[in-house]
């Protein structure tokens, strides 16, 4: 494992901890899209099915369990916690997940590297992760006064995928036969979706203003 990959995973982990911190500290999930959280849970669920079939490393297993556990606990808080669930902006969180789930499923069936159930579900999770942030970005655009923790959560999520690109470049240069164009294209698209957000995030930071998306 290289430094970029470790930094990427840690950034991903920190982003989730920031979201959990927001929920615990403010007893609110205002500005957080439940649709995006549902999609991430689906992504982790399908991608980590190999927990039962393939052992890679202790680090790998522990991280997978942590990502699964935290994503489902976030959903639990947003749906069922008696205080937190009342702060969910249901009326604003209107993105139709079906419009990204179905195309990703079709794409995974058509374009994959191996015709097996596990591999197709894994490929589906790669495609779905690339676009799972869309409901969150739409909700942010509709949210007035995005709080710091929510802004930082999305910023860390974007940074995580950006760091993965550096990891892929590093692996491409150092490992023979490392050719992962499905993952690369999806990852570049995923990072690209954050470009607009990054622009306004840095603008707000530079001008010492509260973040808001036009």
């Amino acid at each position: 494992m290289n430094i970029f990959r470790l930094a990427a995973d840690m950034t991903h982990l920190i982003s989730i901890l920031v979201l959990l911190l927001k929920i615990h500290a403010t007893r609110s999930c205002r500005g957080i899209s439940l649709k995006t959280q549902d999609l991430y849970a689906l992504v982790f669920l399908f991608r980590y099915l190999d927990l039962f079939t393939r052992y890679i490393s202790l680090y790998n297993t522990v991280m997978k369990l942590v990502f699964l556990g935290t994503s489902f606990s976030i959903i639990y808080f947003m749906r069922f916690h008696r205080v937190v669930r009342n702060t969910y902006d249901k009326e604003q969180d209107t993105f139709r997940s079906i419009f990204i789930v179905v195309p990703c499923a079709v794409l995974a069936l058509l374009i994959n590297q191996e015709r097996s159930v596990l591999e197709i579900l894994w490929t589906f999770s790669i495609y779905l992760e690339a676009v799972a942030i869309l409901p969150q970005l739409v909700l942010l655009q509709r949210t007035q006064n995005i709080d710091n923790l929510t802004g930082n959560y999305v910023f860390l999520l974007g940074t995580y995928r950006g760091l993965y690109i550096l990891n892929w470049i590093y692996r491409y240069l150092t490992e023979p036969h490392y050719r992962q164009w499905i993952v690369w294209l999806s990852g570049v698209l995923q990072t690209g979706l954050y470009v607009d957000f990054f622009y306004y995030y840095f603008l707000a930071w530079r001008n010492n203003q509260k973040l808001s998306l036009p």
Binding site: D9, F67, Q113, Y178, Q180
Partner: peptide, 10 residues
């Protein structure tokens, strides 16, 4: 082997 390589990432 290629599939295994992709699967070692999170």
């Amino acid at each position: 082997e290629q599939a295994v390589r992709a699967h070692d990432e999170l």
